[in-house]
Amino acid sequence: MLLRYRTIPSLLSDIDTIFDTAFPVRRTPSYTNAPSALSMKDAGDSLSVTLALPGIAKEDVKVTLHDGLLTVVAERRAPELKENERWLRNEIGYGRTERSVALPYPVVTENVTAAHENGLLRIVLPKAEEAKPKQIAIR
C-alpha cells in the first residue's frame, strides 16, 4: 500500500453502533475517497498526473521529482474536537500520505507545473524533446 492513513480504529466500531441508531446513514457500502486516487495521462507533448487530495491545503503538499520518480507527500490535518463535541462517524483518513509514480518518459524538469483545484492536484510534465511523438512523412 502506497497510501498511509492514520485513523481512529478503536473508536470506529463503537461509533457505528451508536450512530446507526441515533442518526442512521442509509447507505453504508464501501465508500471511496476519490474517483481514482492517482491517474496519469499521456497528452502527446506532455504527461499529466492527477491526484485526489481533498481537504489538504496547498502549504501541506510537497511535490518532488527525482531520477524519473515523481513523489507527492501531503499531510491532512485531523479536526480538533472540543470537550463537548464527539465523533459520530469517521471514514475520512487523516495524517500523512505519500505517493510515488515512475514517469514513463524523460521530462523537462524546469517546466513542470502543478495546480491545486477542488481537492485535486494536477501536475503537468512536458516531455523531453526525444520523447515527443514525431510524425514521419511517407514518401
Binding site: F23, Y31, N33, K82, L88, E91, I92
Partner: peptide, 25 residues
C-alpha cells in the same frame, strides 16, 4: 461513487463532511 464521510456532533449541531474531490461547486 460513495464519498467517505465524517460526522461530528456538537451541542448545537451535526457537522457532516464529505470528500468529493474534483466536484465543481
Amino acid at each position: 461513487l460513495v464519498p467517505a464521510v465524517d460526522i461530528i456532533e456538537t451541542p448545537a449541531a451535526y457537522v457532516v463532511r464529505l470528500d468529493i474531490p474534483g466536484a465543481e461547486r
